[in-house]
């Protein structure tokens, strides 16, 4: 099976019903997306398909219909995406395990809505669990990221 992740093409010898998350992590060695629940409850596995957020633990790799971007393709330590920059500015992460998913979700939100209000941020970001309780800074960082993107 062929797939494109973060701009690179891969060939993976896996069954069509294998969740994308595990193809990324265990077959391709791309570990930015995390396993948290496996049942669409936590959002730690969030990646983009064609630029929009999906829960990769729920997506059978056989039904993938576009290019995949993971947190590692969104930006890099040397060249961060605006959302990642905002996250660093606000020092959001504690354990950080949920943050790949939080950042991918936020980036997707800002693609669809460049200036979300509190209500919209609440609605879209509430599918992503953070056990460390970084929510107050996530809220602030989404707003900062929106400003950065709108300025750009």
């Amino acid at each position: 099976m062929k797939l494109t992740v973060d701009g690179t093409s891969y060939e993976a010898d896996v069954p069509a019903d294998m969740p994308l998350l595990w193809v990324l992590r265990d077959e391709l060695g791309i570990t930015g997306p995390k396993y948290g629940c496996g049942i669409a409850q936590c959002g730690a596995c969030t990646v983009h398909v064609n630029g929009l957020a999906v829960r990769s633990c729920q997506l059978p790799v056989g039904s993938l219909n576009g290019d995949v971007t993971t947190i590692q393709g969104l930006g890099s330590p040397e060249a961060m995406h605006a959302v990642q920059e905002a996250w660093v500015e606000h020092q959001v992460a504690q354990c950080g395990y949920c943050q790949s998913g939080q950042i991918m979700q936020a980036a997707s939100l800002l693609t669809l809505n460049s200036d979300p209000d509190d209500e919209q941020i609440n609605t879209v970001m509430s599918g992503n669990l953070c056990r460390c309780g970084t929510y107050p800074r996530i809220r602030a960082a989404v707003k900062t990221a929106a400003l950065k993107l709108n300025r750009a």
Binding site: T31, I71, Q72, P77, Q84, G96, Q99
Partner: peptide, 14 residues
């Protein structure tokens, strides 16, 4: 550890 944790490059045990 902030930049690594915001870019998916922190390597956890898992």
């Amino acid at each position: 550890d902030m930049v690594a944790k915001c870019t998916g490059t922190e390597v956890y045990g898992i």
